[in-house]
Amino acid sequence: MKEKRRKAQKIIFNSEKEMPIAPMSLGSMTFNLTGAWRNIRPVIDLDNCLQCGICWKFCPDTAILIENEYPVIDYDYCKGCGLCAEECPAKCITMEEEIR
C-alpha cells in the first residue's frame, strides 16, 4: 500500500497545449505530504495494543495503516489531530512533542 502512494508526483504543465481538453483529474493528492502540519506526534505502544482497530477507523487522514495485524502510523500524512489517542480504549497512544 505504501509503495502505491509513493508513485504520486506533482504535475507541471509547460504550456497550454499540454493541458487536457476537458478539466479532469490527472493525479492523486498524495504528493502533498501533510505531515508537515503536525505539532504533536502520536506514538503507539504496541505492547498494550488490543488490536481493536478503533484508531484506524477514526483517522480522518487515513494515515493509520494495518500491517501484520497491528496499526502503523504513516508519519508522512498524519496531521497530529490526536483523535486516535483520545479514542483508544487501552490508552496506548500518546501524543509527544514533534522534534525537527
Partner: peptide, 18 residues
C-alpha cells in the same frame, strides 16, 4: 475490523486537523 479495508479516499487532502 468492523468496516471493509478498501480506501477510496487518499491521504494528502486539504482538510483541517480532526
Amino acid at each position: 475490523l468492523s468496516l471493509p479495508l478498501e480506501e477510496y479516499m487518499n491521504p494528502g487532502h486539504l482538510a483541517c486537523q480532526g
